[in-house]
């Protein structure tokens, strides 16, 4: 299995551990990723707030770069995934926009013919690799580890091509395949606060608090995420939450880190040491911590 790979800015910065764990899990499962050359920022939510057609053209450059590889394009970050998928759909359905994007790409010596399929690693793991293949690689089942499956928004909304928009289940199934106990978590697709945690902390941090508090109430040892911004918000603001809302703490990890642990990889190789709220104690309490 081979895929084109679009890491996005966060996976090279605050979300480094996501990339580390993703690559390591994919390697174990025999999934090859080919990072596209000289990719640029997808534009996220901010770019669309400033200019419409330029935002689509910006994202389309990545599609144009990926297209010659003739492979599905894996985008692990929720915002990147959504923006690339949205761009693809919008230039297909809106001729006026398509014309502008074409003009932009042409100015950079590029073209995009509409043939890139954008995939999220969750989709790839469940639908291409398959739960059986995942189960087959499990060396240390996550026995007893209670996980709150947190999907966030943009992987499933608004285009969820592979799971339900409000009540997705695929990560639940995947983590169960790794032996985890998935708790019922009604906030699984609620907003983490996005960039409001930084720009409007009185709002953003509160949203993150709701999520963490509910995970705690539901008995979760860890929260599993599949987006670097969700991870950042839930992991990095817990001290602020303690100061402004309530002292409540649940470590947040990437779903790929949990898979990696089940596959027998070390915490370090999965980037777990990069957490601000360490998951080590929670893992140790279920005898899942690794040395180093």
């Amino acid at each position: 299995m081979r895929y084109a790979y679009y890491p996005g800015c966060s996976l090279k910065g605050t979300g480094k551990a996501y990339e580390e764990s993703l690559l390591s899990v994919f390697r174990t499962l025999g999934v090859e990723l080919h990072e596209i050359e000289d990719w640029n920022c997808c534009g996220a939510t901010s770019y669309s707030s400033v200019h419409n057609s330029a935002a689509f053209a910006l994202a389309a450059r990545n599609l144009a770069l990926a297209e010659p590889l003739r492979m599905d394009l894996v985008a692990p970050c929720a915002a990147c995934y959504l923006v690339l998928e949205k761009t693809k759909r919008y230039i297909r359905n809106h001729p006026h926009l398509d014309e502008r994007v074409r003009r932009g790409l042409q100015a950079a010596g590029l073209r995009y013919e509409g043939n890139v399929r954008v995939r999220h690693p969750l989709d790839v793991l469940v639908n291409d690799v398959g739960l059986d293949a995942v189960r087959a690689k499990v060396k240390r089942p996550l026995d007893g580890l209670a996980v709150a499956p947190y999907y966030g928004c943009q992987v499933v909304r608004p285009y969820s091509t592979f799971d339900h928009q409000t009540y997705p289940v695929l990560m639940d199934r995947l983590l169960e395949a790794a032996g985890a106990k998935v708790v019922r978590y009604p906030l699984k697709t609620k907003c983490c606060g996005g960039s409001l945690t930084g720009t409007q902390p009185d709002v953003g941090v509160r949203l993150a608090w709701f999520l963490i508090r509910e995970a705690k109430k539901r008995g979760a040892d860890v929260i599993a995420t599949l987006c670097p911004l969700c991870h950042f918000n839930l992991d990095s603001y817990q001290d602020k939450i303690a100061r402004t809302c309530e002292k409540v703490s649940v470590p947040t990890v990437y779903f790929t880190q949990l898979l990696g642990l089940a596959f027998g990889h070390s915490e370090k190789s999965l980037g777990l040491h990069r957490n601000i709220v360490s998951a080590h104690a929670a893992l140790a309490s279920r005898s899942l911590a690794t040395a180093g």
Binding site: G13, T14, K16, A54, R61, R103, A108, L110
Partner: peptide
């Protein structure tokens, strides 16, 4: 935790990208 650096990341073809955005 090695998640932040003060070195600004950049693509190689910045000039082309600017042309692309201007045209769009």
């Amino acid at each position: 935790t090695g998640r932040m650096s003060f070195r600004a990341d950049s693509i190689r073809q910045t000039r082309e990208l600017q042309r692309l955005l201007e045209a769009a």
